[in-house]
Simulated assay, not measured.
Amino acid sequence: MPMDEATLTWIEVATLDELWEGEMLEVEVDGQPVLLMHLSGGEIVAFQGVCPHQEYPLVEGELDLDTETLTCSGHHWQFHARSGCGINPEGCTLYRYSVRLDGSTILIGYPTGSESRQRYHRCREE
């Protein structure tokens, strides 16, 4: 779940010209990879850029718009593309950033203070 917006700094990360519907894009924020996905219906979501299993880059995975599934190319862990919740395995969730559009500019809400140290989740292997 995204952070309370009062604890966020909004950072421009890309434009709609760089991220077409159905595409993924990795951007770097504060030295951390962030995965942007442009889903069907125009929704843009942002998650940690590495798989919590063994930190494979999620941008190298596959986004299936029909099933709204993101599959990591490393070991085929799967996540729901809108929520970041684990499908296989269950119980493992990607860290989600808040997203805002300003015209055609995509901004993410980056956590500040102590929350900035919690930029991605790791999960136990099941």
Rank of each mutant, 00 (worst) to 15 (best):
V59A: 01
R117A: 10
V34I: 13
D17Q: 11
L8V: 09
I87H: 10
G31C: 08
G22K: 10
V59S: 00
E28H: 11
M3P: 02
S114M: 09
V99N: 13
A46W: 04
D4I: 07
E126H: 05
S40H: 03
Y97N: 08
S73N: 10
V50S: 06
A46Y: 02
A6F: 10
T112P: 03
T15H: 12
L39R: 10
E18H: 12
I11R: 12
T15D: 12
L65F: 03
E23Q: 13
S104A: 15
V29Q: 02
M1P: 08
A81K: 00
E68T: 07
V99M: 13
C72N: 04
E23L: 03
I106Y: 08
L107Y: 01
S83P: 05
D17W: 05
S40I: 09
Y95A: 12
H80K: 08
S73P: 03
T105S: 12
F47N: 06
E26Q: 14
D4T: 03
L39I: 05
L101C: 07
M24K: 07
T7L: 13
E28S: 13
L19A: 06
E55Y: 08
A14F: 06
D102R: 15
R96L: 06
G41T: 11
T93V: 14
E12S: 14
R124T: 14
P52L: 09
I11Y: 04
W10E: 07
E21V: 09
I11C: 07
V13S: 12
I106A: 09
G86A: 04
G41Y: 13
L16Y: 08
G109M: 02
V29S: 03
T112D: 10
E12N: 14
G103D: 14
D102I: 11
E5M: 03
S73Q: 11
L39N: 04
R122Q: 14
H53R: 11
P111T: 00
N88I: 00
M24I: 00
M37D: 00
C85A: 15
